[in-house]
Design a protein around this nucleic acid. Structure first.
Length: 815
RNA sequence: GCUGAGGUGGCGUAAUUGGUAGCCGCGCAGGUCUUAGGAGCCUGUGCCGAAAGGCGUGCGAGUUCGAGUCUCGCCCUCAGCACCA
């Protein structure tokens, strides 16, 4: 043991030893209880960032804690290695995306090892390797068989200048991120996964995990799924206004009235239907499309205008002025046979419900606004209960805004006097009985579009054959492998479409020449089930063996960023339910406990003059003695600089390289500080000064142990019986207790209790404080090793050994 | 607007869940050792005050012997979603 604490030396020694001994490799052991500790796998960008360090430090602390408690801990890692940056690198630098990705993985693996995170490297996986994406394809075929994968027309963002499709991020603000050209919508056939088939189950399943997941995450998922209960109601279209040939099959020859499809609306408030003043359609509604040529010129122009305005980019949070136009079509309210005008409105979305709403201005804010603007009649049909007289006569309420609460029906014929709840129930039944409506539940959740017009992803295993149509690839032909390379121009469709060896194939069905699907899968597919692969990573016939899953699954602790609270975590819950239905697993929810960490942020400097971020060494900052910023200016020309605290990023020059930190302070200190500085769900403001405290703490512990380790060599072990209780009635009696020894023992055991409680409740900052207290208590123990009594030695030995054991979760090398 | 979380020293935070507010750390101040120290060690550090003492957990009320914690009202901050019928 060296006299001084040399982090580098200690860390290298133990990292080597852990690798040689394969210390963190896990095997199934039925005699032990398992613990699956999982962190979200990184995208191999080439460099780790502090967010990764935070994530993996938390995970490793948990893994050490459980390992020391005797659990059989599985703690794996892998690479989310499909995705756009590799393809961008290929386009810009002409590199091979596979090589670029593999190089990055090598670099980042070394970085993780320098941090000393205890992973089972024998289970490492990477999404871009054929032995992995083979099972993306396998799952796709299984879903296709079950009707959970299907193809339909859908819109993509298209840049006409680059001739390429763009993701929503790349098209933000409605402009191409590369050339700034206005992005267009293009319709093409795309593959979808039917997550909506599980919408209700995804909601119901939340009760199983509500103890282990942050409420905000569950709330976000709930909102995303967006269940609403209501009813579909059909309004007949009656209209003879348009001159159409009587031979048109849609016209009833006897009455001369159109036999148009009725308009189907979705409403959660059927009780307000007597207050309907119009039907409002989305611009894309089929009835609009069908009748477009029959509309007057004015109406057509109006609709075109609304469509054009809708296509314009809107700023996030900006409220859009309501627009609409009366089409001239008429709809019949099935409850009172009233004729209502049919409008087209920009505020009705084709994607939700039926793309058509009944407008009830008195009881819906949006409809109210719309009616005010176009001077449509506003008729109140729900009243506050206390305003309703005995004979269901209502006192007029001054309606200065929509009254959207429940109440009592008025001006609604037969239904007058009923409460909203009653009326909703009974009116729905009435509609069902008379065949013009039905009770219904709708969801905001949409099916998951997985087609991407890209190279660097898992090919969708589908073949298009002239005679057989859409044919799934055979299981024995999986994986459908990506070609070695492709022309990466960044222009046009998927680069795969330009690789004839890939595209041209034979039909799995009839053996005739056929073409492959050239779209690849969304990378969210890869990351949806990756942690199931860790448990059986080399299986060639199945994604994993169900028996192995029965031991390791589900995940006991999952840790990652909140940014994945909805998409990834919802998709993976969906996928699990599909796997359950495939017989691969026997549970519903894949993750028992979830911790969502906050971002790592730091000060950034922005110069409005230069319209760019400025590196810290080019900025002069004056602070008062409290650290408050008095002024911040550019060194070069003294122009002012704006100081903000933002997420670390290269482009803002406020990133910190984990390697530098490890080099200066040591991995242990970086990890201690990262966990100590803030509760994990909070933002972590990176202030380098804080790490010194962590270094000092580790040095103090190290020096203490150095000073005492000889004296403690022969002290009897602090012992505990198998059930965890202390041996003997009063352990201090065994060693001749004194006051200071008793106090130290008390502190030791309080610390153990506190830290156990903290870990179980997902607190990682307070245990560090507790360990510092224990270490301070040792420091306050003013006895030299040679003067220590037996009681002192026993108490110190017990305190030191427990301190070190508990510290191992944070600083495994030095511990 | 809706939903959720939260407002505690100069700063990051803590408070055994209704029982001495401010643990632990950063920073700061003083001292000590030292050729030297951006090392170590010791002391102090919520605010006002020379002290005695007073005040203090966003603001205002309430419950209670006792409130950072519970109740009601208000203000503010952050996050997610957003014309969802």
């Amino acid at each position: 043991m060296d006299e001084k604490y040399f982090a580098q030396k200690i860390e290298q020694k133990w990292q080597r030893r852990w690798a040689e001994n394969r210390t963190f490799e896990a095997e199934i052991d039925q005699s032990k209880e398992k613990f699956y500790c999982l962190e979200m796998l990184p995208y191999p960008s080439g460099r780790l960032h502090m967010g990764h360090v935070r994530n993996y430090s938390i995970g490793d602390a948990m893994a050490w804690y459980k390992r020391l408690q005797g659990y059989n801990v599985l703690h794996p890692i892998g690479w989310d290695s499909f995705g756009q940056p590799a393809e961008q690198a290929a386009i810009k630098k002409g590199v091979n995306p596979r090589e670029w990705t593999e190089d990055n993985i090598d670099q980042m693996r070394e970085q993780l090892q320098r941090l000393g995170i205890g992973y089972d490297w024998s289970r490492e996986i990477a999404a871009h390797r054929p032995d992995y994406y083979k099972f993306d394809q396998w799952f796709f075929l299984k879903m296709l068989e079950r009707g959970l994968a299907y193809r339909k027309d859908s819109q993509v963002n298209w840049c006409p200048r680059c001739e390429t499709t763009l993701s929503n991020e790349q098209a933000s603000g409605g402009q191409c991120w590369r050339c700034g050209t206005q992005v267009e919508k293009q319709t093409r056939q795309q593959w979808f996964l039917k997550i909506t088939a599980y919408a209700q189950e995804l909601l119901d399943g939340m009760s199983q995990i509500e103890d282990g997941w942050a409420e905000r995450v569950l709330t976000m998922q709930k909102n995303w799924i967006g269940r609403s209960e209501g009813a579909f109601v059909e309004f007949q279209i009656s209209n003879s206004k348009f001159q159409i040939p009587s031979s048109d099959s849609r016209k009833n020859p006897e009455s001369g009235i159109w036999n148009l499809e009725p308009v189907r609306v979705f409403t959660t408030r059927i009780d307000t239907i007597y207050g309907a003043n119009a039907i409002v359609l989305a611009t894309e509604h089929p009835i609009v499309e069908e009748n477009f040529d029959n509309f007057s010129e004015e109406v057509r122009a109006g609709i075109e205008q609304i469509r054009a305005d809708k296509a314009k980019p809107t700023d996030y949070g900006e409220e859009v002025e309501k627009e609409g136009i009366d089409t001239g079509l008429k709809a019949i309210n099935p409850f009172n046979q009233e004729e209502l005008p049919v409008w087209v409105g920009n505020y009705v979305m084709m994607e939700y419900g039926t793309g058509a709403v009944m407008s009830v201005p008195a009881h819906d804010e949006r409809d109210y606004e719309f009616a005010k603007k176009y001077d449509l009649p506003i008729r109140q049909v729900i009243s506050e209960p206390h305003l309703v007289h005995e004979h269901n006569q209502m006192q007029a309420m001054a309606l200065e805004q929509a009254f959207s609460e429940y109440g009592v029906l008025v001006h609604s014929d037969f239904w007058n006097g009923k409460t909203s709840e009653q009326a909703k129930r009974e009116m729905t039944q009435y509609a069902e009985k008379h065949g013009f409506g039905e009770g219904a539940v709708t969801y905001r959740l949409r099916d998951w579009g997985i087609s991407r017009q890209r190279f660097w992803g898992a090919p969708i295993p589908i073949v298009y054959c002239k005679t057989c149509g859409v044919v799934p690839e055979k299981y024995e032909n999986l994986p459908v492998e990506l070609p070695e390379t492709a022309p990466f121009t960044g222009v046009g469709e998927s680069p795969l479409a330009r690789v004839p060896e890939f595209v041209n194939t034979t039909c799995p069905n009839c053996d005739e020449p056929a073409q492959r699907e050239t779209d690849t899968m969304d990378t969210f597919v890869d990351s949806t089930w990756y942690y199931f692969r860790y448990i059986d990573p080399r299986n060639e016939s199945l994604p994993f063996e169900p028996e192995i899953a029965a031991y390791w699954m589900p995940v006991d602790q999952y840790i990652g960023g909140v940014d994945h609270a909805v998409m990834h975590l919802l998709y993976t819950r969906f996928w699990t339910k599909v796997m359950r239905d495939l017989g691969l697993v026997s549970f519903d929810e894949p993750v028992k406990r979830l911790l969502t960490q906050g971002m790592v942020v730091a000060e950034s400097y922005y110069s409005e003059e230069k319209a760019s971020y400025i590196p810290p060494d080019e900025v002069n900052i004056e602070r008062d003695e409290r650290g408050k910023i008095l002024s911040a200016n550019l060194k070069s020309d003294d122009s002012p600089v704006k100081v903000a605290v933002e997420k670390m990023s290269k482009s803002k020059y406020n990133g910190v390289d984990p390697d530098d930190m490890v080099l200066i302070y040591g991995a242990d200190a970086v990890r201690v500080f990262t966990l100590f500085a803030a509760p994990i769900e909070n933002e972590l403001v990176w202030q380098e000064a804080g790490i010194d405290g962590a270094v000092r703490f580790l040095q103090r512990v190290y020096r203490f142990v150095y000073r005492w380790h000889e004296a403690l060599r022969n002290v009897s072990e602090p012992s505990a019986s198998a059930d965890g209780s202390s041996v003997g009635e009063n352990p201090l009696a065994d060693v001749g207790g004194n006051d200071r020894a008793r106090k130290l023992r008390q502190k030791t055991h309080q610390t153990i209790k506190r830290i156990t409680d903290n870990f179980e409740s997902g607190q990682f900052n307070t245990p560090v404080a507790a360990l510092m207290e224990l270490s301070n208590a040792l420091g306050d123990f003013k006895v030299e090793p040679e003067d220590a009594s037996d009681a002192d030695l026993f108490a110190i030995n017990e305190a030191v050994k427990n301190l070190i054991l508990m510290l191992a979760s944070y600083a495994p090398h030095v511990s």
